[in-house]
């Protein structure tokens, strides 16, 4: 990575243009996406992740999310830094909601602004994939006939 890129990335975070947050409030994906609209950008790609009713044929009634909050925020910040190393992007926002969420409610929003759309799509896909792998947040699925904490897949597993 060039020194210039490191400087750019640093200044963005100091300017608080990037954001990464955890909240129990309802999420408005459109509003989150438009919190930052850089003048040099032509596209924002936003992931609006929401609670799915049917997984295969099993019906979910609602979800409950919890997090190891201080570590989750640190991991989100790391992901944003890593995204800048790989993609030509200008701004990233990541917001994850915790607590009980009904079907269709938004649990996570990832918004990436870039001069050109392709980098924004690629970075957004990379960010959600990594978030699901590394950020310490867990969901409990509550079904009509039981409930279970979902356990993901992770390269950090050591046993």
């Amino acid at each position: 990575m060039s020194e210039k890129k490191i400087e750019n990335r640093k200044s963005k975070i100091e300017d608080r243009r990037d954001f990464f947050e955890i909240t129990t409030d309802a999420l408005d994906a459109g509003a989150i996406a438009r919190r930052v609209v850089p003048k040099t950008c032509g596209a924002i790609v936003t992931l609006d992740g929401f609670v799915r009713q049917f997984t295969k044929k099993r019906e979910t009634l609602y979800l409950e999310y919890e997090a190891y909050e201080p570590m989750a925020l640190k991991e989100m910040e790391k992901l944003i830094a890593q995204a800048y190393e790989q993609f030509e992007i200008a701004n990233v926002g990541v917001v994850h909601r915790l607590g009980k969420m009904e079907i269709g409610e938004t649990s996570v929003v990832i918004s990436v602004a870039a001069p050109h759309r392709r980098s924004a799509f690629e970075a957004c896909e990379w960010l959600i994939k990594e978030l699901k792998r590394t950020v310490p947040i867990w969901k409990k699925e509550v079904y009509r006939d039981g409930e279970t904490w979902i356990e993901g897949e992770s390269q950090f597993a050591v046993n």
Binding site: Y68, S107, L131, W138
Partner: peptide, 8 residues
């Protein structure tokens, strides 16, 4: 100590 993460 926690299980493999499942946010998103």
């Amino acid at each position: 100590i926690f299980t493999a993460v499942s946010g998103g």
